[in-house]
Simulated scan of single mutants.
Amino acid sequence: MTRLLDQTYAVARRRFLDAASTAGAEVTSFPHPVSGRGGEELAIDVAVLGSADATDVLLFVSGTHGVEGYAGSALQSWWLDECPGHGPESLRVVLLHAFNPVGFSWVRRVNEDNVDVNRNFVDWADVPGNMGYGDIADLLVPAIWDDETQQMTTAALMEVAGEVGLGRFQEIVSGGQYDHPTGIFHGGSGPVWSNRWMHEHLPEIVGGAQRLGVVDLHTGLGPWSHGELISHHAKGDPGYQRGTDWWGEVRSMHDGESVSAALSGDWLGALDGLLPDVEVTSAALEFGTVDVFSVLQSLRADAWLHAYGDPTGDDASAIRAQVRASFADDDPAWLEALIERFSAVAGEALQALSRSTR
Rank of each mutant, 00 (worst) to 15 (best):
R13W: 05
A19S: 15
G24W: 07
P31Q: 04
P33H: 12
S35F: 01
S35K: 14
L42E: 03
A43K: 01
A47V: 06
V57G: 03
L58E: 06
V61W: 02
S73H: 13
A74R: 12
A74W: 14
Q76R: 07
Q76E: 15
S77G: 12
W79Q: 03
P84H: 03
E89W: 00
R92M: 04
V93E: 13
L95S: 15
L96R: 13
A98F: 10
G103V: 01
G103S: 02
S105I: 11
R109S: 06
E112W: 09
V117L: 14
V122Q: 01
M131D: 13
G134E: 09
A137Q: 13
A137R: 15
V141R: 07
I144V: 15
W145V: 00
D147H: 08
E148M: 01
Q150Y: 07
Q150D: 11
Q151L: 10
V160F: 12
R168L: 11
Q177K: 07
D179M: 00
D179Q: 08
P181K: 06
S189P: 00
G190R: 04
S194V: 02
H199T: 11
E200T: 10
H201N: 10
G208C: 06
L212I: 14
T219R: 09
W224T: 02
S225M: 02
L229G: 09
I230P: 03
H232A: 11
A234G: 15
K235C: 13
D237Y: 07
P238N: 08
G239S: 07
R242Y: 10
T244S: 10
W246N: 01
W247I: 09
R251M: 06
M253Y: 00
E257M: 09
A262K: 15
L268F: 04
L271S: 13
S282R: 12
A283V: 15
A284G: 14
D291V: 04
D291H: 03
D291L: 00
L296N: 10
Y308C: 14
P311F: 06
D314V: 13
D315E: 15
I319F: 08
I319Q: 10
R324P: 07
A325L: 05
A325T: 07
F327R: 02
D330C: 09
E336K: 04
A337F: 00
L338M: 11
E340T: 13
F342Q: 02
G347A: 04
Q351T: 12
L353S: 04
T357Y: 00
